[in-house]
Computed example of a mutant assay.
Amino acid sequence: MKMNHSHAFGSTLRAVRSELGLSQEAVAHTIGTTQRHVSFLETGRTTPTRAMLGRLTTGLGLSAAQRAALFHDSGYRSPYPARSADSDDLQATLDLMQSQVLRHWPFPAFVVDRDWNFLRTNGPADRMVASFGGVPNMHALFLSPDFEPVVTNWELASASFYTRIQEVARRSTVVRDALAAAEANGRFDHVARVLGDTDELPIYIPIEVTLPGLGRLRFTSLHGRWISMHDALAEQFEVELLVPLDAESEHVAGIAFGA
């Protein structure tokens, strides 16, 4: 391994350690080495062995992106290929998520990336998105000027939107910019007041919508990721499912978004 790899690896290890909020002592304790050795790795004075690289990438609970970065800068052959978003493998994974999850969900369902862009949708989701002008991502849906007027419990429900968008914004500059623009326009100025004046919040806050001629729709959403993703892009894929909360809502959703 060449010395330039040592310095690149050291910088990457230091950056990963910073992301994890760990000291050199904490890293050393976790992987069974000394603080001095971790320091030498970070300064490039020592090059990692394959054994040490394995201990670092498995012992610290790293994301696929972090593991890939360490391997890439180690000088060793990486088991984490740099795939493009339109690669056949990633597209096949998305197709599988659509066919085995989204296709079987009778209500709107989406696969989104870290920026909340819609990567895959089912038929009910297509019809829901079309009703808001064909927005391309989840934050555009939440922040659409057409969305707020149809939510009958907007003041309280928007607190859920706000905290969820804040969560996504911590990892996405695109969503962070969209949220900042909404905040600058005062879209969520009321949230602090509403939460401050609320004595007790329920376990979850339903979104309540009244659809003309159809009735009331109360729903929330369920989101999650596939486990064991070993690709820096694929590990960001999330499935989002709209979940009606009662029999009336299930009926209304079926009429509004069903086939």
Rank of each mutant, 00 (worst) to 15 (best):
L233D: 14
F219T: 10
L53V: 05
T46L: 13
Y162W: 05
T152P: 07
A92C: 00
V243G: 01
P79H: 01
F147D: 02
F237G: 09
L143T: 09
R120P: 07
G54A: 15
V135P: 01
V174E: 14
R171T: 14
P244G: 10
S249H: 01
E238R: 15
D189K: 07
S221I: 12
T43W: 09
L195W: 05
F132R: 06
T57L: 01
S23D: 02
I31A: 01
A51L: 14
N137V: 08
L53C: 04
V38K: 13
S158F: 02
V191Q: 00
F142E: 15
N4D: 15
L56T: 08
T121Q: 03
V191T: 07
V135C: 12
E25H: 14
D231P: 09
A192F: 05
M1E: 11
S158L: 02
A157I: 00
A169H: 00
R170K: 14
E235G: 06
S144V: 06
G215M: 00
T12I: 02
G123D: 10
T198K: 11
F110Q: 02
Q35D: 08
I255D: 08
T46F: 10
F147I: 02
M3R: 15
R103E: 09
Y162N: 12
V194R: 10
T173K: 15
P212R: 14
P108M: 06
T34M: 01
D113F: 00
R216Q: 13
F40C: 07
Q236H: 13
A109S: 07
S78P: 07
R193H: 11
R171A: 13
L62P: 03
T47E: 15
L56N: 08
V150Y: 05
L214K: 05
L22R: 09
G123C: 09
P212G: 09
D231C: 04
H104Y: 07
A51M: 12
A232P: 08
P244T: 04
N122K: 04
V129Q: 15
R103C: 01
R171E: 14
H5E: 15
F132E: 08
G224N: 09
D177R: 14
Q166W: 06
I255L: 08
F257I: 03
R114D: 10
L179Y: 05
D146T: 11
T152K: 03
A26M: 11
K2I: 04
G186L: 01
G54V: 12
F9I: 05
V16F: 01
G59P: 05
E200A: 13
A28L: 00
R176C: 06
A85K: 13
V168Q: 12
L141H: 14
S144R: 03
S84N: 13
Q91I: 08
S6W: 11
D95F: 02
V38R: 11
I255P: 10
Q98E: 14
T93A: 13
M97P: 12
T163A: 15
R45C: 01
D177I: 08
M97W: 12
E200P: 00
T121P: 05
F118L: 09
T58R: 13
A184Y: 06
A92V: 06
T220F: 07
K2P: 09
